[in-house]
Design a protein around this nucleic acid. Structure first.
Lengths: 198, 198
DNA sequence: GAGACTATCTTGACGGTGTCTAGATTGATG
DNA sequence: CATCAATCTAGACACCGTCAAGATAGTCTC
């Protein structure tokens, strides 16, 4: 807390402030001025660290993709059974979305992101690379995927991403409420276990 | 074209104007004032037909869900082979999203919609009901689904919705561009055919 | 048909937003 | 120590959603 005219680490402070707002007040409340207020600086300060609101959201989304990659990596490391590898990744994916709905929604709000920005262009594919290979331990970097691989990966990704999106948007709980004795957690787990079985 | 003070059918005109903006300029440009401008009325006029911007977007989304239901119904009617029924629905779902990306994205922008509004509360489930039963011809209204049904429906819905979302957001084409000879249309078709096989 | 009523639409205002500019402050460089 | 560039503030602008007050016109009653 330097109280000085120059903040010193405003860029990271703005990202932290933005995430705080995202978690606390939702994606609607996440504005450039709100982030500046949260960080205790004037409304014009962010311009020196992010070109515009898209720049801030893009960096935040890139951060999210790195965390998603870490979550998938962790799930990958903790899985012993090769047959349970893909379902474990799915659980981690959906779990990430449910634990951080704000940043997950932001990560796929493409009209407010700049996918040509280097940080996002690197962080995005890094997270998805996990879905390409079935057996864990294979290094995905430099792996030359063919069409069947791409089909398998896309199928998995679609299932997992669709499930996560529907849950976070509240569409799935709206569905389970129409059916007695339907539990959301059980439904998610069953869909992942059966839908991602080898 | 009455040119009079009273429009006469402003409510529908505003919905049409909103859809025009959505298709032409994207979801970012769709504002209440822009819709009023497009319809040729003052910025305060919409308030008498929609409570607020959420009201307009909710009605527009409800319209989208009705059209999605019609598209699924049409695909259902045109399918002769029972085995190809579910993939046909999937093709219709993804096709709808690709043909009308703006309204599709809006339909699942839950933070700007009011799902407690009667129109949306009716139109939403009406579209999804198609995914509940496998054999076509069954009346889905009043059908008492059990847990295995819900699991099957959710699995299909997740796969199809995830695929549509990833395509519309541009994530999938970013992936195919990294792999030589990968065609987006072929990929989508293959994922649908293999992933939704009975 | 005339008057009253009500729904519809316009206009202006308010606080909020993103972005631009000019100016103040400060750390770093030579 | 002087200069300079980077950082931050403050003010302005156009746009946004929403509210209140007033103008207009269709409708209903007598």
């Amino acid at each position: 807390m330097t109280q000085s005219y120059h903040h010193g680490a405003l860029r990271q402070a703005l990202l932290d402030a933005a995430e705080t707002i995202l978690d606390r007040d939702g994606i609607e409340a996440l504005t450039l001025r709100a982030a500046a207020r949260e960080a205790g600086v004037s409304h014009g300060a962010p311009a020196h660290h992010f070109r515009d609101i898209t720049g801030l959201l893009t960096e935040l989304a890139a951060m999210g993709f790195l965390r998603l990659r870490d979550a998938l990596q962790e799930a990958s490391d903790e899985t012993d059974d090769p047959a349970g590898y893909v379902p474990a990744l799915g659980r981690a994916y959906v779990g990430f979305a449910r634990a951080h709905p704000g940043i997950f929604l932001l990560m796929f709000r493409s009209e407010r992101l700049d996918w040509s920005a280097p940080s996002l262009d690197l962080a995005g594919p890094a997270a998805f690379a996990f879905l390409l290979k079935e057996e864990r331990g294979d290094d995905v970097a430099g792996y030359a995927a063919d069409m069947p691989d791409l089909v398998r990966a896309t199928t998995r990704w679609s299932l997992v991403h669709g499930l996560a999106t529907l849950v976070v948007d509240g569409r799935l709980s709206a569905m389970t409420q129409m059916i007695p004795h339907a539990d959301l957690d059980v439904l998610i787990e069953t869909v992942l276990a059966k839908g991602l079985a080898p």
